[in-house]
Simulated scan of single mutants.
Amino acid sequence: MRVTVLGGCGAWPAAGQACSGYLVESDGFKVLIDPGYATLPRLLELATAAEIDAVLVSHGHPDHCADLNPLLRARALGDVRPPALPVYAPAGALDAVLRLDNARMLAGSFVPHDLEPSRAFEVGPFRVDTWALPHHVPNAGLRLTGGGKVMAYTGDTGPADALVDLAKDADLLLAEATYPEEVPEEDAPYLSTALGAGRTAAAAGVARLLLTHLWPDTPPEPALAAAARSYSGDLAVASGGVTVLL
Rank of each mutant, 00 (worst) to 15 (best):
Val5Asn: 03
Leu6Lys: 03
Leu6Asn: 02
Leu6Gln: 00
Cys9Met: 03
Gly10Ser: 05
Ala11Tyr: 12
Gly16Thr: 04
Leu23Trp: 07
Glu25His: 10
Asp27Pro: 10
Asp27Thr: 06
Lys30Asp: 07
Leu32Ile: 03
Asp34Thr: 09
Pro35Ala: 06
Ala38Gly: 11
Leu40Ala: 09
Arg42Thr: 00
Leu43His: 04
Leu46Cys: 00
Ala50Asn: 04
Glu51Tyr: 08
His59Cys: 13
Gly60Ser: 10
Asp63Glu: 11
Ala66Met: 07
Ala74Asp: 06
Arg75Ser: 12
Asp79Tyr: 02
Val80Arg: 02
Pro82Asp: 00
Pro83Asn: 00
Ala89Tyr: 08
Ala91Val: 15
Ala96Leu: 09
Arg99His: 11
Arg99Leu: 11
Asn102Tyr: 11
Ala107Met: 14
Ala107His: 15
Pro112Ala: 11
His113Lys: 05
Pro117Val: 06
Arg119Leu: 14
Phe121Met: 08
Glu122His: 12
Gly124Thr: 08
Phe126Val: 08
Asp129His: 13
Ala132Cys: 14
Pro134Asn: 12
Pro134Ala: 15
Val137Trp: 07
Asn139Arg: 06
Gly146Asp: 01
Gly147Trp: 04
Ala152Arg: 02
Ala152Ser: 14
Gly158Glu: 04
Ala162His: 07
Leu163Cys: 04
Leu163Met: 08
Asp165Thr: 07
Lys168Trp: 13
Ala177Pro: 00
Tyr179Thr: 02
Pro184Tyr: 02
Ala188Lys: 11
Leu191Thr: 03
Thr193Pro: 01
Ala194Met: 01
Ala194Leu: 01
Gly196Pro: 02
Gly196Phe: 14
Gly198Leu: 11
Thr200Ser: 07
Leu210Phe: 15
Leu211Glu: 02
His213Gly: 07
Ala223Lys: 13
Ser230Ile: 00
Tyr231Arg: 03
Ser232Ile: 04
Gly233Asp: 05
Leu235His: 09
Ala238Arg: 07
Gly241Pro: 09
Leu246Thr: 09
Leu246Val: 12
